[in-house]
Design a protein around this nucleic acid. Sequence first.
DNA 1: CCAATAGTGTCTTTCAGACACTATATA
DNA 2: TATATAGTGTCTGAAAGACACTATTGG
Lengths: 237, 237
Amino acid sequence: MPRARTEVHPPFAVTVDLVVLTVRDGRLHVLLVERGAEPFAGRLALPGGFVHPDEDLADAAYRELREETGLGGAGQAHVHLEQLRSYGAPQRDPRMRTVSVAYLCLAPDLPAPVAGSDARAAHWVDLATIGQGGGLAFDHAEILADGLERARAKLEYTSLGTAFCPAEFTVAHLREVYEAVWGVPIDPRNFHRKATKTAGLLVPTGRYAAGTPGRPAQLYRRGEVGSIDPPMTRAGG
Amino acid sequence: MPRARTEVHPPFAVTVDLVVLTVRDGRLHVLLVERGAEPFAGRLALPGGFVHPDEDLADAAYRELREETGLGGAGQAHVHLEQLRSYGAPQRDPRMRTVSVAYLCLAPDLPAPVAGSDARAAHWVDLATIGQGGGLAFDHAEILADGLERARAKLEYTSLGTAFCPAEFTVAHLREVYEAVWGVPIDPRNFHRKATKTAGLLVPTGRYAAGTPGRPAQLYRRGEVGSIDPPMTRAGG
DNA sequence: CCAATAGTGTCTTTCAGACACTATATA
DNA sequence: TATATAGTGTCTGAAAGACACTATTGG
């Protein structure tokens, strides 16, 4: 907190950066934009932008999500957004002293192509094709790594895995989400029992998926609970 | 991230605020300072201050910790410091637009009185004597609540409980830390087995505590591991 | 029929929680 | 001695992991 109004306080630019994750074709993807201007022109970066003068941090994150990706608008599909952490190394932006508040966003795989009102296009990038660092602009590789770690951890003890699923989904769909995020195979039978017996995680709709080989799977909606107790276990539940 | 250098970006003041926790006499305490100046003059607040122009956020947190509390200096006792989250509601400081990056600090109970170079004295305040809100300045009640929640959660699956202990401590001391942070009684025998059998949590010194009634307890040092697997359980382990 | 996926039952192992019991100090 | 605390042993129930087995679809 400021000590007294007479004390000098240097000006900072404050931005939000978004780690937007989804699962497509059984693999984890992150939403990236190609930078048009220097520095790091032509490099991939996390979507984000400046916080407005009278805007709350979370509001800025939602606005950037809408503007740059088309996600999260009113009447749109459910997306989860939470603050990740802040990054403020003195030289993280060569132009000015900047503090970035990063947000983590988990979204279902959307049939509509992701495109913002912004001229720059946002693309889903398969995380398997990005190495350590991956040539991302600024300190975005570190932010992305922190976001991945957070997402992997939260799938253990919260219901956030369902945030990657559409409004109605099968247990197998949810299992594929876990396999994609954790990068490990999971026994379908034990996962089925765990998911369906965890109170409040899934709400059965009574409807069944069709058109796939094998016995039709029941469709579920997201439950209301936030935390899973006992948690999902990462070593092949 | 900034889009182009031509875009306007409003100036923000960036501060760090510290949630410094310790366990004294079996009860959880937080370090608070009394504000001397308006706004909120005379009210209790979290220690903190402005981030300097060329200073990393974590460096600013460490500096404020030293300046305002005398904790964390070179050769001092071990303290744990981690970023908590950021707070940037437009009107959180009536003087100017401010974003605060909060840090959580866990410290052992120090025999030396806590006093900073600053004229204002920092005091350990028993959390049981602070209500919901507790009359804290700014949004510090919310920050404190978030810090408590983080500390309680991290004691489950990390070794951070030992950060509340001095360099050498008994299993009973660590148990009292858990009881104070979680506010629940824990069975001493089951806790003893869990703590001593969790690989890497405790390093036996071979020495024993003396002067207390009963069989002398073995003294331990902090182990190297960060995470506890399987975790401590909160419902009276 | 077969292949594939959904979903159930059951066995083993691990571990939390309860608590009897032993060990070793102070008063 | 009594009392207090340290530390071990053991039983029970919950739940993870492995995996046999049944159920129900499409081809």
